[in-house]
Amino acid sequence: MDKTKRRTLKVLGGTLGATAFAYALEPLTAWTKEQSLDEFLQRHYKELSKSELEAVLRRIEQKTRETYGVDVHVTDLHPQEGVEFGYALNLSVCIGCRKCAEACHKENNHDRATNNSYIRVLEMDQGTFDLEKGTTTYDHAVPAPGKYYLPVQCQQCDNAPCVKVCPVQATWKERDGIVVVDYNWCIGCRYCEAACPYHARRFNWQKPQVPAAELNPDQGYLSNRVRPQGVVEKCTFCLHRTRAGRLPACLEACPTGARVFGNLLDPDSEIRWVLANKRVFVLKEELGTRPRFFYFFDT
């Protein structure tokens, strides 16, 4: 083969290869349009100055307006002095109606199609605490005879495995005890999802789909704002509500009052009364995660 022929072939091959490569990457053009430079360069939540954070909040509101045509209010409420949150759940009273899961679904702007919720309710056989015998997909009138119900959500562990494993500190424990995620910093490696012993974390396998009319406009940067695709999220005890003094959505929705929420540092709070007077226990205590979510049965 003479040299010119060889060169022609090479050029042809190179051109073909480059074209094929560009063609293979074609789906990315739509994706890159959605990304903004501001978002790409945004620093970690803890490093943002007050004004930078303000700009970020307004940008998120603006983006939500563009996408949904809805005015939402994104806040960044601070943890309160002298407040550490705790949650307790009375298993004798819970009837397994999943109203809490539904309230979470609506409050936190979860993807509608998957019925996503931070709470999973297990129907358990009376007389066992073996989770293997539980089921989450029960679909009959509740409470069913011989069963009890075990709702599980983020236990806001003091020794949280999810926080430990995150390679980029995208998730951390706030001083009021809530484990949060910076959705704009998470790289989506899902190591935290593997580490969590309570199935408390969810990954946005795609952009959550919520009809504009159903969007909850009361949003928090670290909690229920519409999450981007490809990041991990979790229960935050509705911190956009609870840091404003309000009760979490799941508690308000509970028809039997099985749920108790309050300030662990306030000796007169309901949660402290439960801890002092009920025989409380935590899930998977042997793992040493030190949850702030307690369960009890009525005596």
Binding site: A88, N90, V93, T242, G245, R246, L247, L251, E252, C254, P255, T256, G257, R259, V260, F261, G262, N263, S269, E270, W273, V274, N277, K278
Partner: peptide, 11 residues
């Protein structure tokens, strides 16, 4: 003691 019957509003 707020551990039965439920509530709404503010903690």
């Amino acid at each position: 003691h707020g551990t039965h019957g439920g509530m709404t509003g503010y903690w």
